[in-house]
Design a protein around this nucleic acid. Structure first.
Lengths: 195, 195
DNA sequence: GTCTATATATTGATAGAC
DNA sequence: GTCTATCAATATATAGAC
């Protein structure tokens, strides 16, 4: 028999974040009610407030966790010293990681508007940190003379936008495997930076 | 003296669309109330329903108008027969047009979730039509042997994502003029497609 | 830790006066 | 064509029982 009450803090907390992320990504932060999240989790709305002070804090937690994990995962993977090899690592990493966390990526790009200025600044700072990782690769390649690109800042923005765009159309089981997509995008990026 | 009532259908209609677009882009469709739109226009909420059957129809009207104008503007500008010249036209057009209509572009990418399936299909179809214009350029360049690219479909998505990304960071009066940005992006696109 | 019940506010949309 | 007034639904968040 399912019990209607009890202690499940170790289960309910993560479940709330997972369901909130799913619903926010699907319908938008403002369009999702705390009751909807609670229903998806299997608790009553009031119970959510044991885990988050309010709705925005729930969103901030999701965005910050995602950005922290993105940066940590990249730094754990980045190994090569050669600029071209590092750039290929970045391209493949970004596509793969973002496809694995499509909902969180979507939120990170779409729901910044719903943050207070303080929270917005925190997330923006993390985003900038990640971008700087790519820019450093491009600059090192420029300095080494192995990349020919007109502007490392614009190339950074162009490459990240291009790679993140994969999330808008890629479907598992489609015409191309994820690995093949990575290879094709790497080909375009490599040419674009003149490597 | 400002009058409180009267007939202004020719002014109020466009004003409603303009303010709705501004507010939807800034706060998100679901986060904006009909009362907020009415207040921005300078009428009462009830008056809005003389111009739109409901809130979603207001959004659809904005999205459809934007996509129609985007496609029409491109077709009016596209002149060259040479694939490379046409691709440069596309790159410059896309950046310029999207920067001029940043709010509408933002809505077109962010608020599709809030549409009914029927309305979603209409907008998606227009988006696909626009993408096909670029893909046709890339294919003609492939066929003519002047572009070297591994996959015209992926290149289409990559280029559009890259170009649209300019909207997320470009600020008038910043380090680079819009024209300079166009030139730098064209350089990267040209290289990426192997032209 | 979760429930039920509720306070307080706000929403989209409509009716009828002017 | 716009206003005021209002309905019915829904929102976030809290209080207190268990």
């Amino acid at each position: 028999m399912a019990r209607k009450a009890g202690s499940h803090s170790e289960i309910t907390g993560p479940k709330i974040r997972a369901e909130a992320q799913r619903l926010f990504a699907r319908h938008g932060f403002a369009a999702v009610s705390m009751r909807q999240i609670a229903a998806a989790v299997g608790v009553q709305a009031g119970a959510l407030y044991l885990y988050t002070p309010d709705k925005e804090a729930l969103l901030v937690d999701l965005l910050k966790t995602h950005m922290d994990e993105l940066i940590a995962a990249w730094r754990a993977i980045s190994k090569s010293n050669d600029p071209t090899a590092r750039l290929e690592e970045f391209v493949r990493f970004h596509i793969r990681f973002n496809l694995e966390r499509a909902e969180a990526v979507f939120l990170s790009y779409m729901e910044l508007r719903n943050l207070s200025p303080e929270n917005f600044a925190v997330i923006e700072d993390l985003r900038k940190t990640y971008e700087t990782e790519l820019e450093a690769i491009l600059k090192s390649g420029q300095d080494a003379g192995v990349f020919q690109l007109p502007d490392s800042k614009l190339a950074t923005m162009a490459i990240i936008a291009m790679l993140t765009g994969v999330n808008t159309w890629f479907r598992e089981g489609g015409r191309l495997s994820r690995d093949k997509v990575e290879t094709i995008y790497w080909d375009m990026v490599r040419k674009a930076v003149g490597a």
